[in-house]
Design a protein around this nucleic acid. Sequence first.
DNA 1: TTCTCGACCAAAATCGTTTTTCGTTCCATT
DNA 2: AATGGAACGAAAAACGATTTTGGTCGAGAA
Lengths: 191, 191
Amino acid sequence: MNENKKTIITNISQKIFSRYGLIKTTVDEIAKAARMGKATLYHYFKSKEDIYREVVEKENRFLAQKINEAIDKEDTPKEKLKAYITTRMKYLNELANIHSALTEEYLDHYAFIERIREKNFQQEIKTIRTILIDGNNKNLFSIEDIELTSFAIISALKGLEYPWSTEISLPKIQENIDKLLDILFNGIVKR
Amino acid sequence: MNENKKTIITNISQKIFSRYGLIKTTVDEIAKAARMGKATLYHYFKSKEDIYREVVEKENRFLAQKINEAIDKEDTPKEKLKAYITTRMKYLNELANIHSALTEEYLDHYAFIERIREKNFQQEIKTIRTILIDGNNKNLFSIEDIELTSFAIISALKGLEYPWSTEISLPKIQENIDKLLDILFNGIVKR
DNA sequence: TTCTCGACCAAAATCGTTTTTCGTTCCATT
DNA sequence: AATGGAACGAAAAACGATTTTGGTCGAGAA
């Protein structure tokens, strides 16, 4: 099995899927862009869906890697959490396929999309939990139910990813993130 | 102008729009259900879209009223905020038209839907701000930037409304709301 | 004068049929 | 084992005819 060919196909189809999505992209298009016959694609992949799954999983791994790198650069759990959300949003904007996979309704009925969403979610839970446990251990946080708190924080952060308001400038988005993190850390109740 | 007829049309069409949505509902259907001729509907309303706008705005007013009633019943800003999110979610589940108006992509390009979304959002901002100011005045909260904090809290609460996770039981949803509110109030940083 | 509604109009949607496209496989060749 | 042009069959798109639907007209009743 030629892993190099598989990688070529993945890289090339990644770009085309980014631009046109799963439906509008044709196998013929991918084959031509990769300078191969269509049958060759089927030598390396099970189906068109399989190519797309590989592309989305690749971007999900890349996203996780970038998030982990950003978190590892910080010392305090506070900075880690901040790095987490900032990096996640930055790369979700860049990685069109994983972004689509997580948000587009037309992909809802694909089983593999469901698995990727679950995986991405478990990655989120794990990452947040790790940061919270670290915060508790360093006596900076005071969290009793780590699991529930992780879940609640992810809910809150989802509100940042969801395109619910149309007229928010980019500076305001960063201000919003900063303030939300401030509230999540310190709360609004007087100390 | 017979306000009673207008009300009859609005109430009847509200039920039909709830069930079938804007597209699948026909003017003929509404006319028959209201026991009127089609032309009569056009005597009271500008267009089909105009009837739908009236229905959605009616539900939005009702939602606001229910939220205000729930908030007024509480004494503390904490309880008010809790009542706010609980009541909002409860009634958004019941009021199919305003719920659709706020969330359905196929309605995105209607100007009146944009205005309703903006109005609903301003209502949210105003309600949250009022609660936060009350909290500050009672020396319970310690908020410097009311506007930004309102905005950030709304972001966080949006994460609860967004159907981002598929396998959440109803009890878990309530737990999640409670924990998120706890975090918003007290933060996770050790006090 | 206001309100009502059946008939009508034009545009949009639906339908059945035909044509084209596309995901996948076949099979000969390298 | 890997390759790729051709072929296959199902699905999607295109097409033209027909039906449906949003909205209006104009006569009549209240």
